[in-house]
Every structure is written in structure tokens, then in C-alpha cells.
Design a protein around this nucleic acid. Structure first.
Length: 280
DNA sequence: CGGCTTTGACCTGCGC
DNA sequence: GCGCAGGTCAAAGCCG
């Protein structure tokens, strides 16, 4: 209840919420355009460079939407944290409001099963008011630990058992009082080594830096960076072929975590930074 | 003591 | 309308 008052500078992206599928089931190209035009913000937010010529491979977004599955795009994490897939979603919005929902497209169904409008406390929200989800951005990471370091501080506010999955889903919220970003973390029921992280919203502040690796800039806060050498396909939950997973040996530098506490990565894993980026 | 996690209850939307 | 499942709240407890 503490993050509701924040004014999100990115609220201009509000119009279409949820997954980057605003184009709707019948407009694959639109989805792609949407992805690269509007989502560039959230992508850049995480410093993910998607090349337009790879956009064609994102066609499956469309199917995923219809299948009510979360789209994932193969990413480029490697090392102990091998991001195997990721997805982009619409940009931020403390949108709330009703007007912005005009777009109300199929993607809206992702608001699906329950959940409250993030920025509008249930008590304050008018009854019957359509809830609009914040844009979400998900990726799958092959990791031993669930909570991956991304440069921001998170507070866990809930945990829920997920149907058909032995692993619970954890809910986190950015500790910055003005930031409404949330994220969900869960393990794939089909491959327990895969952690599915879903970001919702866009940070309105700079990262605080990796607690174990020194301060980092906002631009490098999120290590994930797509490179042309990495296959970029979307996969619904748990559908990532093992071959794809194994192939994610992209050149991501692993920063020694020797001096870092062992809590997060059990002392085994290093922080992942994009090539060329070191601790500063 | 403040910040965080845990956890049961509650709320909400969706499908049948 | 009802039941289910996801999402959130908030009190209680833990920890540094």
C-alpha cells in the first residue's frame, strides 16, 4: 500500500496495457511494431537491444496471446544465470483510469485471473472500474536462485501457490516509494531450473546498484542484452526446447562475486553484466 | 527500531 | 450464480 502515490514519468505510455500484444491476434506486424516502437522504452529501460530484423521471429507473440500464455523471448543471459527467453510488454502506466483502456484489446485478458489494479487500492477504486494492468515484461532465466539481481531493491509482498506447479510464485514490489514497479518470480513447473521473472511497470528512478558489485548505472542495471547472435524466439511457459537453453552460451561477462555476500547467489554465481561492462 | 519476509485472509475476474 | 485461481493486503514475526 505504500507505492500508490508515485507519479510515473512514463505514464504517457499508458494507453495499452499488459503484454506487448496490443496489435491483437490479427495483427502480427502490429505486435512487432508495437514491440519496437512503444516498447522500446521499456526495452531500453532494461537496456535490451532488439534488432528490427529479428522482429520477425517474434511472430509467435500472437499465438501466445491467444493461448493465454506469457510470451518469452530468448535472451542472452549466460553463465550461471542463463536467460533463455524473454518477452517484452507495453510500457509503463500508472494509467489506471478508465479512458486509457480504450484500447481494450485481447491482451487485456491477461488481467485475467484476478489481481488488483496495481496503482489503485481496491478500496479506493470504484467498483466495477475496469482494472488495467501495467505493462509487463517477462523473461525466463536458467538459474539456481530465484531472485536475480537487477540493480533494484525489491520487497516481497506476497507468495502464492500456483496451480499445476509445485513451486510458489513470489510477488515483489520496488522498495522505492514512488515506484510502482512489481515483479513476479516463479519457477517453471516443467523445468525447475528455469526462473520466470515478470516485471510490471517501469521504474521511475535509477537503480540502486548491485549490492554485491558496487554501484551501477541505470543503463546497465539490467544485464540482459540481446545480441544478434542469440536466437530470439518467444515461448510460452515452459516450452523452451532444451537445445535452446543449452545454446545460450552467449558472451556475457561474469563478474567475480568473491567479495559478495553469499545470500543471493549462494556464493557460486557471479553477477552478469553485458559485454564490456564492468563494475564501476 | 526499521526493513523485510511470511502467511492467511480477502478481493476480483473469469469460466462453467 | 458459483467456484476457482491469481493477486494483494496486512498483521505478525524475524533479523541486522
Amino acid at each position: 500500500m505504500e507505492d500508490k502515490e508515485g507519479v510515473d514519468p512514463a505514464s504517457e505510455f499508458t494507453s495499452d496495457s499488459s503484454w506487448a500484444l496490443a496489435g491483437g491476434p490479427d495483427s502480427v506486424s502490429d505486435s512487432v511494431n508495437y514491440f519496437f516502437d512503444r516498447e522500446s522504452n521499456i526495452l531500453s529501460e532494461f537496456d535490451w537491444n532488439l534488432q528490427p530484423d529479428h522482429a520477425e521471429q517474434i511472430d509467435r507473440f500472437d499465438e501466445l496471446d491467444r493461448a493465454d500464455t506469457r510470451p518469452y523471448l530468448a535472451g542472452s543471459f549466460s553463465g550461471s544465470h542463463s536467460c533463455v527467453a524473454a518477452a517484452a510488454a507495453a510500457a509503463c502506466g500508472s494509467g489506471s483510469g478508465s479512458g486509457t483502456a480504450s484500447g481494450e484489446d485481447p491482451s487485456e485478458k491477461y488481467t485475467g485471473s484476478g489481481g488488483k489494479l496495481p496503482e489503485i487500492p481496491s478500496k479506493a477504486r470504484k467498483k466495477g472500474q475496469k482494472r488495467i494492468r501495467q505493462p509487463r515484461f517477462a523473461f525466463m532465466t536458467k538459474s539456481e536462485v530465484e531472485h536475480l539481481e537487477d540493480g533494484y531493491r525489491w520487497r516481497k509482498y506476497g507468495q502464492k501457490a500456483v496451480k499445476n506447479s509445485p513451486f510458489p510464485r513470489s510477488y515483489y514490489r520496488c522498495t522505492n516509494s514512488k515506484c510502482t514497479v512489481k515483479k513476479r518470480v516463479e519457477r517453471s513447473s516443467e523445468d525447475p531450473t528455469i526462473v520466470i521473472t515478470t516485471y510490471e511497470g517501469q521504474h521511475c528512478h535509477h537503480s540502486v546498484g548491485f549490492p554485491r558489485g558496487g554501484l551501477i548505472s541505470h543503463e546497465t542495471a539490467f544485464a540482459g542484452r540481446f545480441t544478434p547472435s542469440v536466437s530470439q524466439f518467444y515461448y510460452p511457459h515452459g516450452e523452451i526446447p532444451a537445445s535452446i537453453i543449452r545454446s545460450q552460451q552467449v558472451p556475457i561477462e561474469i563478474v567475480e562475486s568473491r567479495t559478495l555476500p553469499q545470500t543471493t547467489n549462494e556464493g557460486l554465481l557471479g553477477d552478469i553484466v553485458p559485454p564490456g561492462i564492468r563494475n564501476r
